[in-house]
Write a protein that binds this DNA or RNA. Structure first.
Lengths: 120, 120
DNA sequence: GCTTGACTTCGAGCGCGCTCTAAGCGGCAA
DNA sequence: TTGCCGCTTAGAGCGCGCTCGAAGTCAAGC
């Protein structure tokens, strides 16, 4: 019934090692176990993992993610603070995109320059 | 006449430690010295540093930057390869921006959700 | 019963990109 | 001349985010 660690790994794109690591540091809370002690992930765990990987891929540090995860565990009284964390992070992501876009322009310029020089 | 390491640090945004490190690994080539052996950077060094920091900030690994720096040192016969490196990198940057933009949408959605829940 | 293989825990190890320390030198001011 | 400051080198150390290894358990198949 539960989802094995291999399956969770396949679906989340994280290695089994990383899944255990995430649990150990508190990013995922107490995954259920089958009778022989093996992890049995739920769909809800996978949805949470999916969100976590998005935070990661946008550059949120593990420590901040842990903070967020802890608030989530503490329940509905923490939504305002969670929202603030996400808003602050969103701002960083926007800044990051702006900077990348700017640097992309420089890259275009350099590449054009090489192309022109070669054509000469 | 030459620019001191402190000045180069201030203008590049890199620490003096990092400037020496970059030179040691070959990212910057043989910075000139004043009579007492202290580094004397040129405007051209600073322009190059500026470009390097852009490559870094767009996520190019140090190893790739070293490769690029070496081609540059080898002279004008290597422009085609340098262009290819930049083009490949540009593609990665574009992908990265696309991914970030997508994740930004998820972040917006989550934040809206919290805002709505709180307002209820 | 024995092998195989995937799981478990816990702690050590790794790769990257710096960052810092130790030991020493040169130049200037008091 | 003494003290201080900022530079020099070579090499060690660090923080992050995994990643791996060792040693053990359990269930299934031969």
């Amino acid at each position: 019934m539960g989802i094995t660690i291999q399956e969770a790994s396949r679906r989340s794109g994280l290695s089994a090692h990383t899944l255990r690591y995430y649990e150990r540091i508190g990013l995922i809370h107490e995954v259920e176990r089958d009778p022989s002690g093996h992890r049995a992930y739920t769909e809800s765990d996978l949805a949470w993992l999916d969100f976590l990987t998005r935070l990661r891929s946008t550059g949120m540090p593990i420590a901040d993610m842990c903070r967020y995860a802890e608030l989530r565990r503490r329940g509905p009284g923490t939504t305002a603070e969670r929202r603030r964390i996400l808003e602050a992070h969103r701002e960083r992501v926007r800044t990051r995109i702006a900077r990348l876009t700017e640097d992309l322009g420089i890259l275009d310029y350099k590449i054009d320059f090489y192309a022109t020089t070669e054509a000469r």
